[in-house]
């Protein structure tokens, strides 16, 4: 049913730390690897070895340049489904293939009933839904619903593949609806925010902003190594400096 649940028991989602993401794409490749064999398999590619390779991925990592001059910085920006509380992608679905789970708030597409009309992708401001040309249905982040409850996996593996893969710990998974959860405390500590709240979709996933950088205008950089002594007070020092220079060529 594409009408939304009044409330969900949990609000499972991701908290993404933009301060320490290095843009290595490990979460994206790990996501693709797991999900091409998971809930909504396959995640197929079109023309994979040809001139125009493209395909369905559930996680995309952009690079943005933020600010100008010395205060400018590069921010790596992972983008995937935010499992919104009021997602129009679900309510526009004509078949009921798209739904939001009452028990944990995960937004899913049933690949067996989706007709591939693509309207949900039009309704999503975050580009979270991609059409699988070969499968003829829409694909989206499942929050690794087939991992997080999987009793056959070791405890530490019961998190989304992207979270498990992240080498810097920039991705966190948990119940954002529970104010005492680790992710909720992280959001409170670091000022986690919603993407485009003006759209009114109430995203569950939160982004942690980059920490303030040291002021680049003040000359407060500490050199990594001691600078060599300035050359030549006496003749011997000058000679050895000259010799060193010549021999180094």
């Amino acid at each position: 049913m594409t009408t939304l649940p009044k409330s969900t028991k949990k609000k499972l989602g991701l908290v993404i730390d933009l301060d320490i993401c290095v843009g290595c794409q490990a979460c994206a490749t790990s996501c693709k690897e797991w999900n091409t064999g998971g809930y909504s398999a396959p995640l197929s590619d079109t023309d994979p070895y040809g001139a125009d390779p493209h395909g369905a991925w559930l996680n995309r990592i952009h690079g943005f340049e933020v600010g100008d001059g010395e205060s400018g910085q590069t921010v790596h920006f992972p983008r995937s489904c935010l499992h919104c509380e009021t997602p129009a992608c679900v309510t526009v679905c004509p078949t009921g293939a798209s739904y939001k789970r009452e028990e944990d708030g995960i937004v899913l597409v049933n690949p067996d009933t989706c007709i591939g009309c693509k309207l949900c992708s039009w309704a999503c401001p975050y580009g979270a839904r991609e059409y699988d040309e070969n499968h003829g249905v829409m694909k989206k982040c499942t929050l690794c619903v087939d991992r997080i409850y999987n009793q056959h996996l070791a405890e530490e593996d019961r998190v989304p593949a992207c979270v498990r893969a992240c080498p810097t710990g920039a991705r966190h998974f948990g119940d954002i609806g529970d104010p005492n959860s680790a992710v909720s405390k992280l959001v409170a500590d670091r000022g986690g925010y919603d993407l485009m709240p003006e759209m009114g979709y109430k995203p569950v996933n939160k982004y942690l902003p980059p920490r303030a950088r040291r002021d680049g205008s003040a000359n407060n950089f500490q050199p990594a190594v001691e600078a060599p002594d300035p050359p030549g007070k006496d003749l011997a020092t000058s000679f050895f400096a000259w010799a060193d220079k010549m021999l180094s060529q």
Partner: peptide, 11 residues
């Protein structure tokens, strides 16, 4: 991106 408080955002 929600990063406007830092400065201009450019892809």
């Amino acid at each position: 991106t929600g990063l406007g408080h830092i400065g201009k955002v450019h892809h």
